[in-house]
């Protein structure tokens, strides 16, 4: 029998799988063969040492996830942190998008004040151009409408003040 075969016997002997009848033969060979003796010594130390240095500690997440499963936790326990983080990011992104849309819409919204100024001005112009009235009462009503519109226009343009009476109509037509 070659030393090669004895190597395999050494492997089996060290794991307790060598048949009893072969153990004695192996022992006798080991006693007389320094090569196989060294092999046996090296192999025994290697298995013992490797068993210790190759161990790896799982992370706390992994252990907690397993323990949670043992105690009836859900399937997502290991990825719970990643799962909730992704939800938080999604909510933040949606909120940012909503705010951006809101700001965009607000910026694009027509200035109500400007619109009103234009509207009043258009009315004033229209009334001024159509001043072909025939009766006093219509003329008075016409003047009143013009005065009111002029007052509003001046107010919108920032000239009007809340207190006191002022001839705003006169201001508008340049009489004052």
């Amino acid at each position: 029998m070659t030393c090669k075969r004895y190597e395999q016997m050494i492997l089996l002997e060290q794991s307790g799988e060598l048949p009893v009848e072969e153990s004695e033969g192996l022992r006798r060979h080991i006693d007389s063969c320094p090569t196989c003796r060294n092999y046996m010594k090296f192999y025994g130390n290697l298995i013992h040492t490797a068993g210790k240095i190759m161990q790896e500690n799982p992370s706390d997440f992994a252990i907690a996830a397993v323990m949670k499963r043992i105690n009836g936790g859900n399937d997502r326990s290991f990825n719970a942190f990643v799962h909730w983080r992704s939800i938080a990011w999604t909510i933040s992104a949606v909120a940012a998008l909503v705010v951006a849309i809101f700001i965009f819409q607000w910026q694009m919204k027509p200035n109500a004040r400007t619109d009103r100024v234009v509207q009043v001005y258009d009315l004033l112009t229209f009334l001024s151009d159509h001043d072909d009235v025939n009766t006093t009462s219509v003329e008075e009503e016409h003047s009143e409408n013009l005065r009111n519109l002029a007052t509003e226009l001046l107010r919108l343009e920032g000239f009007a003040e809340d207190s006191g009476e002022t001839d705003w109509f006169g201001l508008l037509i340049g009489d004052v």
């Binding site: 190597e7 320094p34 003796r37 060294n38 010594k41 130390n45």
Partner: peptide, 13 residues
């Protein structure tokens, strides 16, 4: 098979 002459050698150690 490596023939190691020195039986006291312990390369692992």
């Amino acid at each position: 098979i490596d023939r190691i002459a020195d039986e006291n050698a312990d390369p692992l150690k």
